[in-house]
């Protein structure tokens, strides 16, 4: 059934609103992905305060300044699982079927869910920037740098949310989506989110060199520490955009196969 763009947009807005409100109505889901990254940032600022003088570390005033980008990425990665888990719950409890029975745009079911977690990702980035600001953590790139990091939070949450939606649409199980959480944890740790790649060695360094999260974090870090540059902006925005395009295509394909199997 072909729908008018305005009708599809109306469905998308309604479903986006629903998914956004659902996230903020569950503080038990929202809280940990805001609190834990800040806890680790506070922990790191005390534990690794002397590490910033090591060769390979950029010139920063504090470890907290260095770890800002890692904190944002960590929080957004962990928070973005929530939307996909909610999509799986919709499938489990039959809401997904009821949406299909109604004349609802199929793609808006997916993008409506992704909108909620993406807005939450942007909000997380903003919260981290605001909470760490009184501790002297600023973004040298100025207002454009702040906006870029918030937009990167949105894009990263969208990209990861789409990837997790593939699992949700394939399995229809919220547990399976939550079960992929360790993969994100591993990807984050095998990157330069917490320490510079220049301080790593051997196979670990090679993995961090291949991990796109390293470059995404380093772009944000460069905006925060060095200031505005085209390279930093490209790394901050183009990498999550590229991943988002790829994972969205995968999610749409998985949506098609779920619809075709019915």
């Amino acid at each position: 059934m072909r729908r008018k763009p305005a009708e599809t947009a109306r469905h998308l807005v309604a479903l986006s609103r629903r998914s956004t409100l659902a996230i903020f109505r569950q503080p038990a889901l929202v809280g940990p992905s805001l609190i834990f990254p800040l806890f680790f940032a506070a922990l790191g600022s005390s534990a690794f305060s002397r590490a910033i003088s090591l060769p390979g570390f950029p010139a920063v005033d504090s470890y907290l300044q260095f770890t800002l980008a890692g904190t944002v990425t960590q929080g957004v990665l962990f928070g973005s699982v929530t939307g996909a888990a909610a999509l799986a719950t919709d499938i489990q409890d039959g809401f997904f079927d009821r949406l299909l029975a109604a004349p609802t745009s199929r793609t808006s079911i997916l993008f409506g869910r992704l909108a909620g977690s993406s807005l939450f990702g942007a909000m997380q980035a903003l919260v981290f920037l605001l909470v760490l600001w009184p501790f002297g953590v600023t973004v040298q790139a100025g207002i454009l740098g702040y906006i870029s990091i918030v937009v990167a939070g949105f894009l990263t949450a969208f990209a990861v949310g789409a990837l997790m939606s593939v699992v949700a649409l394939k399995t229809g199980s919220a547990e399976a989506v939550q079960g992929t959480f360790p993969v994100l944890f591993i990807l984050l740790f095998l990157s330069s989110a917490f320490f510079p790649r220049e301080t790593m060695s051997g196979a670990y360094r090679r993995i961090a060199d291949l991990n796109p999260i390293s470059y995404m974090v380093e772009g944000q870090r460069s905006l925060s520490i060095d200031g505005l540059s085209l390279t930093a902006l490209t790394q901050t925005l183009a990498i999550p955009t590229g991943i988002a395009i790829l994972t969205t295509l995968l999610a749409l394909r998985q949506l098609q196969s779920r619809l075709a199997s019915r």
Binding site: F48, L54, P55, G56, L190, T199, Y204
Partner: peptide, 15 residues
């Protein structure tokens, strides 16, 4: 063990 030792490989150089 692996991720901490790999990520914080350089901390042992702190005096």
């Amino acid at each position: 063990m692996i991720v901490f030792a790999g990520t914080f490989f350089a901390v042992t150089k702190i005096p």
